[in-house]
């Protein structure tokens, strides 16, 4: 029992330390990792870490890596079958690479604070009114994405940017699309995929459509997000708590 209790304590305190110390990775390490990444890793993995199929380093999506030690081992031994060479880094360099990846490639140094997740949940469901669009699972109203694993998919600074500056932060793929067809129908929704001849979208009732461009009369990609900005609407503590809650959502 004592042992179990200690383990829980260690886990809890580990998380607490991670939060106050920038996830346990110093800004200096992240910056150093950025330099190593740019010089040694970017050519293959790309500036956003997403250039290899099935891998997105900045979003923590890997094929075989779970822990920080796994990252170090993979970097050190390489993956011959995939064309990744073995890199011979010093331990400090390996730590820096891990820090840079774990920071979600955040080189901006944007400050953020993670507050109490339980209080954040209350903000999410109460004052924030977030549940009006964001469903607990799956897409909600206006194609608002599920946030059930947002803490695994996005870094805190990114989530904060979405909350405060949704228009600026909106990725092109998330722009609300409005298509008027030659037969007079209008479809509004979210663009899922596109090529030279067709566009795939999910309308506001979440139905899927694949539309031939030849049938389109007008096609607009809006630059204004359906999500309102929360800048000035939440106190610093509420924002920190909300961030604490959202980053705790890691999926099942």
């Amino acid at each position: 029992m004592l042992c179990g209790g200690l383990a829980v304590l260690a886990a809890v305190s580990g998380r607490a330390i991670a939060q106050v110390e920038d996830h346990g990775y110093s800004a200096a390490d992240i910056q150093a990792g950025f330099k190593i990444y740019s010089a040694q890793c970017q050519l293959c993995h790309g500036p956003n870490g997403d250039q290899i199929a099935g891998i997105n380093l900045s979003r923590q999506r890997f094929k075989r890596v779970v822990s920080d030690d796994d990252i170090k081992a993979t970097v050190s031994s390489g993956i011959v079958s995939a064309g990744m060479p073995a890199f011979r880094f010093q331990p400090a360099e390996l730590n820096s690479i891990v820090a840079f990846i774990r920071s979600g490639f955040d080189t901006s140094g944007t400050p953020f604070k993670l507050g109490d997740a339980a209080r954040g949940k209350a903000v999410f469901e109460g004052k924030g009114g977030c549940t009006a669009c964001h469903a607990p699972q799956g897409e909600g109203r206006f194609n608002a994405p599920s946030l059930s694993a947002v803490g695994a998919a996005r870094q805190p600074v990114e989530i904060q940017r979405y909350i405060l500056e949704p228009n600026k932060a909106m990725l092109p793929l998330n722009r609300p699309v409005s298509i008027t067809l030659k037969d007079g129908r209008t479809l509004k929704g979210r663009r899922l995929n596109e090529d030279s001849y067709s566009v795939q979208l999910r309308d506001e009732t979440l139905r899927l459509h694949s539309i031939a461009k030849a049938d389109i009369k007008s096609y607009e990609l809006g630059k204004t997000s359906n999500m309102p900005s929360y800048a000035g609407k939440l106190s610093d503590t509420e924002l920190a708590d909300l961030l604490g809650y959202l980053t705790s959502l890691k999926g099942s």
């Binding site: 500036p47 956003n48 250039q51 600026k168 932060a169 909106m170 990725l171």
Partner: peptide, 9 residues
Amino acid sequence: APGTPTPGI
């Protein structure tokens, strides 16, 4: 926008 997917190799 930051984080936008962009063409690479």
